[in-house]
Amino acid sequence: PTFSVNDVHSVLKTLDVNKACPPSDISPFILKNCRSSLTPHLTFIFNQSISTGTVPIQWKKANVVPIFKKGDRSNVKNYRPVSLLPCASKVMERCLFN
């Protein structure tokens, strides 16, 4: 598969700016509001990634954060792990899904 500029632009337009992202990542707010400038570059990166079969190493790293479920806060079993993935990798994943 290859991505068009319109594919990437439509995904960027629907980003939820309130979602968490890793501290070292570009915020979804910036990706969404600067989408006109970023779309051609992201489209190129996504298409290169698909054609070479490689994903940037930075996109494979996730911050795992414990989220409290219920019960006693001192019990480790009352937490669940949530992985915060880079926003660009989530955009590419959404483009693939669409």
Score class of each variant (00 low, 15 high):
1 P>D: 08
1 P>A: 04
2 T>A: 05
4 S>T: 15
5 V>M: 10
5 V>Y: 13
7 D>S: 11
8 V>R: 02
8 V>A: 01
9 H>I: 02
9 H>S: 07
10 S>V: 08
11 V>F: 01
13 K>F: 07
14 T>D: 13
14 T>K: 13
14 T>R: 12
14 T>P: 01
15 L>K: 05
15 L>E: 02
16 D>G: 01
18 N>A: 07
18 N>S: 12
19 K>Q: 04
19 K>T: 10
21 C>E: 03
22 P>F: 05
22 P>G: 13
23 P>D: 03
26 I>M: 14
26 I>G: 03
27 S>N: 04
27 S>H: 09
27 S>V: 00
28 P>G: 02
30 I>K: 00
31 L>F: 14
32 K>F: 08
32 K>R: 15
33 N>C: 07
34 C>E: 11
35 R>V: 00
35 R>Y: 00
36 S>M: 14
36 S>P: 02
37 S>H: 14
37 S>E: 14
42 L>A: 09
42 L>I: 10
42 L>F: 15
43 T>R: 12
43 T>V: 12
45 I>L: 15
46 F>H: 11
47 N>H: 04
47 N>C: 04
48 Q>F: 14
50 I>D: 06
51 S>Q: 14
52 T>C: 14
52 T>P: 02
53 G>H: 14
53 G>M: 12
54 T>A: 13
54 T>Q: 14
56 P>A: 04
58 Q>G: 11
58 Q>S: 14
58 Q>I: 13
62 A>I: 09
63 N>G: 06
63 N>M: 08
64 V>E: 13
65 V>R: 08
66 P>T: 08
66 P>G: 13
67 I>N: 07
67 I>T: 15
68 F>G: 12
68 F>R: 13
68 F>A: 08
69 K>A: 09
70 K>Q: 14
71 G>E: 12
72 D>I: 09
74 S>W: 02
74 S>N: 12
75 N>S: 09
75 N>G: 01
77 K>T: 09
78 N>Q: 11
78 N>W: 10
81 P>Y: 04
81 P>Q: 03
82 V>K: 09
82 V>D: 01
83 S>Y: 03
84 L>M: 14
85 L>S: 06
86 P>A: 01
87 C>W: 03
88 A>K: 05
88 A>E: 00
89 S>F: 06
89 S>A: 08
90 K>C: 02
90 K>P: 00
90 K>H: 03
92 M>R: 05
92 M>E: 01
93 E>K: 10
93 E>P: 01
94 R>C: 01
94 R>M: 09
95 C>Y: 02
96 L>R: 11
97 F>R: 15
97 F>E: 15
97 F>Q: 15
98 N>D: 14
